[in-house]
Design a binder for these strands. Structure first.
Lengths: 195, 195
DNA sequence: AAGAAAACCGACTGAGTACTCAGTCTAATT
DNA sequence: AATTAGACTGAGTACTCAGTCGGTTTTCTT
């Protein structure tokens, strides 16, 4: 592997575990075997390393969800919603490092001054909320989901699922024990009320 | 005001705005007018300042919720749940600095090695989840809330409400626009299904 | 008023920080 | 074999950091 790639790989690992500020160039150098100078030969500064990782993150994760969007075919929109929740949790587990980076403070701090960073973050979150919205709209068409504001409900749904990811990441709660109840809650929340 | 108090006040402000790592003792000294030596006369190190703030945070916030727990008297448990959500959001807005500290990475990192920190955090979160659980159990007794696992549902409820706080803090979404839909969602999620 | 104790000061330290730069190495091209 | 360009090096730079220390001022006690 090229030095540049191993720098990015190690930086992804370190940033996700220890955060941006708590990762030093000396540590990154030690971990990759690349001299500190080499790191700054490939990236003009520490922030550029982070931005590159964020760009890769987007190009890694979004297609995963886009592909999923094309593939789904379910009995009802409500079932699709459940499968989407499950899929999100699955990907978040698979790409733990990347999702952990999204749950830190630094990217949002950077986004305030750096438009490129802002754009990337927006694209990522739009994609996330979109897949939930798609499922909700499908459910509304086939009658399995009630008549409620799709985008807002998608946002609420996303925030619920994402906090599960957070629980798992910080080891705050056994997520396995919460998963079934979470799905049931989402069904009650969105499903058509019985009259 | 005593120097020690103004140090704590300024540190609370700085830690919540810029995070623990990004707040320097020099800055804290400048802001309070206390010499750096004075800061270390009152606190043995930076971490102790943070722990003191966390302790104060607990002693500030928990009684607020305990008092609320004693006062409530509502038609149904479901109504009480709604009022509790609203109360949590109200306090989170009132004590923005403190809640912002709870949404950072450092306290959880510290909790991994520092049992005292771990205890404080657990006490705080237990208290938070408790007030939601109390409402759910009340609703189950008066029949306004369905027969579902109270603690887990309380945890899901809490995570929903807390992500609203997060949205507001990071300016990610207009929370006012989401509030009504969130309440309605919670009602559907917990309310007794119509048969 | 004298002495003791507590509060306070700020220059200082040494370890750590992101980043630079003059120069070396490697491999492809001529 | 000579040239060239990109990859790489690591000692060095200017700076920031949490924490220390010797000394001064303020406050309390007798």
């Amino acid at each position: 592997m090229k030095k540049k790639d191993s720098i990015l790989q190690a930086a992804t690992y370190l940033f996700s575990r220890k955060g941006f500020k708590d990762t030093s160039m000396a540590e990154l150098s030690r971990m990759t075997g690349a001299a500190e100078g080499t790191i700054f030969y490939h990236f003009k500064n520490k922030q550029e390393i982070f931005l590159t990782i964020l760009k890769n993150l987007k190009e890694d994760i979004l297609p995963e969800f886009e592909r999923y969007k094309g593939e789904k075919s379910f009995k009802t929109g409500l079932d699709m919603m459940e499968e989407t929740v499950s899929f999100y949790l699955y990907v978040a587990g698979l790409k733990e490092d990347l999702f952990s980076i999204l749950h830190q403070r630094y990217p949002y701090e950077l986004a305030e001054t750096n438009p490129e960073c802002r754009e990337i973050l927006e694209a990522i979150y739009n994609c996330f909320v979109d897949i939930f919205e798609t499922a909700i709209r499908a459910g509304q068409e086939d009658g399995s989901i009630g008549d409620l504001p799709a985008r807002k409900s998608a946002l609420i749904l996303f925030s619920m699922v994402d906090s599960l990811v957070r629980f798992r990441m910080y080891n705050l709660y056994d997520v396995g024990a919460l998963y079934n109840e979470m799905i049931a809650s989402c069904r009650r929340m969105l499903g058509k009320a019985k009259r």
